[in-house]
Amino acid sequence: MSRNGTRGSNRRLDVRKTYKMLIGGAFVRSESGRALDVEAPGGQLLGHVCRASRKDFRNAVVAARKAASGWAGATAYLKGQILYRAAEMLEGRASGFQEVLQSIGLTPAAAKAEVSQAIDLLVYYAGWSDKYLQVFGAVNPVATPHFNFSVTEPMGVVAYVAGEKRPLLDLVSGIAPIVVGGNVVITLSTSRASVAAMELGEVLETSDFPPGVINLLCGLREELLGQMASHMDVNALVLQGGDAKEQTACREACALNLKRFFPKEVNEKENEDPYRILDTVEIKTTWHPVGG
């Protein structure tokens, strides 16, 4: 073979991607140096993804916390613009995503549908960014001379454990409502879905999200879930799938710092639902005295 890797025809070596996680705006390997094999449904090796350690999760919490106040203070307009940009970037890479989804077992039709839905979902939540406050906030009638109103506030650092059934959509449908509410998020993807998640990292990283607002990890659910539920600097845990035992364990650990806990069933109909934003925002009510 000649120096530039071509000989005669267009034969060349495949350059395969090593999937890295997204923490604090940087693409990183696990600090533990561990990796997991990802296999296609037929059993052949597709590649390797990182196996996040508990330390990786803690690093992600630190990065997320650093980004939290800035993102919470960003204008609704800006948050909507950035989410919309994510949709644009995903649209531009739609065919690549379809290939990735097919490689992990989706039919061509299912892959295409999933990518389209993910793009539409980002646009949908981008639209809600300057509207959900009007829907969930209120001016409340009270019997005293007070102007009484309720507004939403982001919870802060949210951990999100994505399911595996719909590799791309489960992740996007979790991230979008969380960040549009002004929260920062740390996600965990597992097994084959990890590949789609790490691809999505490249989309999100070019969508003007400030570093640390979205952090994507992949690894083993049973290894990281305990840490995600007990960490005192995490304000909410959204869990997709999981059996009753797992949910009970999470609920107990979440009680340590009164972390909000939301177990979510995978439900395709519920993807486009403004109430998913309400899950990870608090309602703050203010009593303001008015002239008596």
């Binding site: 916390r65 960490h231 005192m232 600097d233």
Partner: peptide, 9 residues
Amino acid sequence: TGVYQGGDY
């Protein structure tokens, strides 16, 4: 305590 802490506390 065995759990990681946050600045709020």
